[in-house]
Design a protein around this nucleic acid. Structure first.
Lengths: 333, 333
DNA sequence: ACTCACCCTGTTATCGGTAACATGTTATCG
DNA sequence: CGATAACATGTTACCGATAACAGGGTGAGT
C-alpha cells in the first residue's frame, strides 16, 4: 500500500461498496448496524482519514462562510467577527477571513479570492462596493450579508445601523450643551466610505440646526489611528480653539486628539469638547472619559450568525436588521 | 447559461482546450501571449471564478495555512496576522484563522477543527499546548510554526522572542532609575501562559538584582483589558504607593493603571512608575507616553511567511528565529 | 529537402467522494 | 400465497481542474 487510505479500501476490507461506506461514515440510518460497526472498526484499523476536500468538491458545499473586514486590527470589527464565530460554533462552518484595508480595489481582489473557495455565504463589512464587485457577487448566487451600514441598495441581507443617525444624535447632544462651532476629524476625503457617512451625518445635522459650516480636519488616509488624530491636532495648535467641539470619526482618533490637547495645555471639555465613535475601551478608560457612540459590534456578529443559520435551514427573505446605536456621554462634552 | 462558468466554457469561448485555459490562468509561460490575453478577457466577460476546491482536490493540496491566535481583538496579534497575510499574498495561500481565547482546551478543539481542512502548515501562537494537542500535531505530519515565544521543546519551527529577557531589561531599566519596590500587574495565575513568562521574567530579574519580593496584582482572568488594569489599581487605591513601579503585563493594562492613577491624583512617574508591554498605539499616544517593550509583531508574521514560503519550495530544517524585542522608554519611568 | 529542436496546444485519465437511480432481499398483509 | 412495502446495498456517472504524455507546426542548420 503506497498512497493514502480511501473509502474504496474500507469497502474492500468489509466487502461492501464504497457507497455503503460513505453512507455509514455520514451516519446514514439505512445502513445496518452491523455493517456500520464493521466499517467504523476498519476505519480505525486502517487509519482512514475522511477527505473533506473531496466531499466539498463533489457536493459543491464548502462549509465555508467568507467574511471581509476593513481591518482586523480594530477592536470593533474583531468583536463582530467573534460574535459571528461564536454564533456559528455548532454549524460546522469555518469562517474565511480577509481584510480590505479600507480599499475598494482590494475588496474586489479579496472577494474574488474568497469566492474561489466557494463559500456558502459571504459577509461584507460596509455597503459600498465597486460595480464589478457587485456583479461578481450577483453572479455567485450565494447569500450576501452587508454589515455595519444600512446601504440604500443592498445586495441581500443587512445587519447594521445608521452612521448618519448616530452622528445626528451626537450633534444634537453637543448643541444642547452649548457647542456651535464644530470641526470633524476624519480620514482624507474618499478614503473611508463608512467614515464619509459619519461626516455627512454631522454636516447634515449641523445644517438642519443652523450651525456654522462644519470644518473638516484631514487626519490622513484610512485607517486613521490614534497617532493621526494626535498629529492633526498638534499641527493645528492654537487654531483648534476656533472650534468648540471636535467630532472625531472614531474613538482612537478622539483619544489622539484628547491627548494632543492635553499636551498643548487645553482643557477638555472646558476649552473644547471632543467626541468619538465606537465605544472602544480607550474611550471608557481614558481620563477624562470620551463621549462616544456605542455600536453593539458583538451583537452584529451574532445577528449575522442567526441570519446565516436560518438561511442554511430554509432560505428566507432578505433580512434588513437595524441593531441601532446609542449615545454614550462621557466627560469630554 | 445555467450553472456556473467553468474552464470548459472559457475554452469553448476562445477555441482552445481546457488544459490551455488552466495553464494560462496559472501563468504558465508556455501559453502564447495572445492566447493568454484572450483567456483573461473571456474570464472577465463571462464572470468566471476559479474553483480552488477542485484544484485542491485534484492536486491534493488544500492551499490553506491554519493560524491560531489567543485573540484577534489584539492589535499585536492582528498585526502579526497581517504581516503573515501580506507576506503570503502571492503564494495563493488562504489563511484559516481561529482564536483560542487564551484557553488550552479551546486550542485543542480549534486545532482539531483546523486540521480537518488539511492545511499545508499550521501556525500556533504560543509554545504551551496540551499533550493531546501535541500528539495531534505530530500525527498530522505537516509543518508546525510556533510564534510569540521561544518554547523549550518546539514542535517544529519557531519565530518569536524571549518574554523573560524583555522583562529582565525592563527591570534593569527601572532599577537604573532608582526603583526597587516592584509590583507586577497581570492575569490571574495560570490563565495566561505568555503572561506567566513575563511575570517569571520580572521575578527572576528582581531576585538577581537583590530587590525586595515582587508583589503580584491580579487584574482578573486573561485576556486582561484596560478596564481590568484600571479596576485593579482603583481597588487598591493608596496602597499602590507602597510600590515605586507597576510593571504591567501589557500596554492596555498599563494604560488602565495610568488612567486610574491620574484619577486617584497620583503623579506618574513622580509618585510611581508604570510600564507596559507590546508597544501598542495607546502607549505612544497617551500623555504621558508609556515605557514599554517593542515586539515587532508585524515582523514575526513576515518571518513566518518567509519560513512557510521556503518550506513550500523545498523542505528545510526546523528554523529557530528570535526576532528580539526592545525597550521603548517613554515618560512613565 | 531533411532533420532536429522548440514552441504551443491537445488528449486522456484521474483525484475521492456522493446524488440519483437501480436492484435484490426480507417482512407484512389481505 | 402472491402482492407490496420496507429495508439494505450496489451501479453509474459525474463534480472541475490538472499531471503526464502526445502531438502538429514553424524555423534554423546542414
Amino acid at each position: 500500500m503506497s498512497g493514502r487510505v480511501t473509502m474504496r479500501d474500507l469497502a474492500r476490507a468489509v466487502d461492501r461498496s464504497p457507497m455503503t461506506v460513505s453512507r455509514a461514515l455520514r451516519g446514514d440510518e439505512t445502513v445496518s448496524a452491523k455493517t456500520r460497526e464493521m466499517i467504523t472498526k476498519a476505519a480505525a484499523d486502517l487509519g482512514y482519514v475522511y477527505d473533506s476536500t473531496a466531499q466539498a468538491f463533489r457536493t459543491q458545499k464548502s462549509g465555508f462562510v467568507a467574511v471581509t473586514l476593513p481591518s482586523i486590527n480594530n477592536a470593533n470589527f474583531a468583536e463582530t467577527f467573534r460574535g459571528l464565530s461564536d454564533g456559528l460554533e455548532n454549524d460546522t462552518i469555518q469562517l474565511l477571513l480577509g481584510s480590505t484595508n479600507y480599499q475598494v480595489e482590494k475588496e474586489h481582489e479579496l472577494v474574488l479570492q474568497l469566492l474561489a473557495r466557494k463559500p456558502q455565504a459571504i459577509v461584507l463589512t460596509g455597503g459600498h462596493h465597486a460595480p464589478q464587485t457587485r456583479q461578481l457577487l450577483e453572479n455567485a448566487r450565494i447569500p450576501v450579508v452587508e454589515i455595519w451600514d444600512l446601504p440604500e441598495d443592498p445586495l441581500g441581507h443587512v445587519v447594521g445601523f445608521s452612521n448618519a443617525d448616530a452622528m445626528a444624535r451626537m450633534v444634537h447632544h453637543l448643541v444642547e450643551n452649548g457647542r456651535r462651532k464644530l470641526a470633524f476629524v476624519g480620514a482624507t476625503l474618499g478614503s473611508d466610505l463608512r467614515g464619509s457617512a459619519r461626516r455627512d451625518g454631522v454636516i447634515a445635522a449641523a445644517q438642519s440646526l443652523g450651525l456654522p459650516d462644519v470644518t473638516l480636519i484631514d487626519a490622513g488616509p484610512a485607517p486613521v489611528s490614534m497617532h493621526h488624530g494626535a498629529q492633526a491636532i498638534t499641527t493645528l495648535g492654537e487654531e483648534i480653539l476656533n472650534y468648540d467641539a471636535l467630532v472625531c470619526v472614531s474613538d482612537p482618533v478622539a483619544f489622539g486628539a484628547l491627548s494632543a490637547c492635553q499636551r498643548l495645555g487645553f482643557c477638555v471639555p472646558e476649552d473644547i469638547a471632543i467626541t468619538g465613535f465606537g465605544h472602544f475601551d480607550v474611550a471608557a478608560v481614558s481620563s477624562p472619559r470620551i463621549t462616544t457612540v456605542g455600536v453593539h459590534a458583538n451583537a452584529i456578529g451574532q445577528r449575522v450568525a442567526q441570519v446565516l443559520h436560518d438561511i442554511f435551514e430554509d432560505k428566507l427573505e432578505p433580512q434588513h436588521i437595524d441593531v441601532g446605536s446609542e449615545l454614550v456621554v462621557g466627560e469630554t462634552s
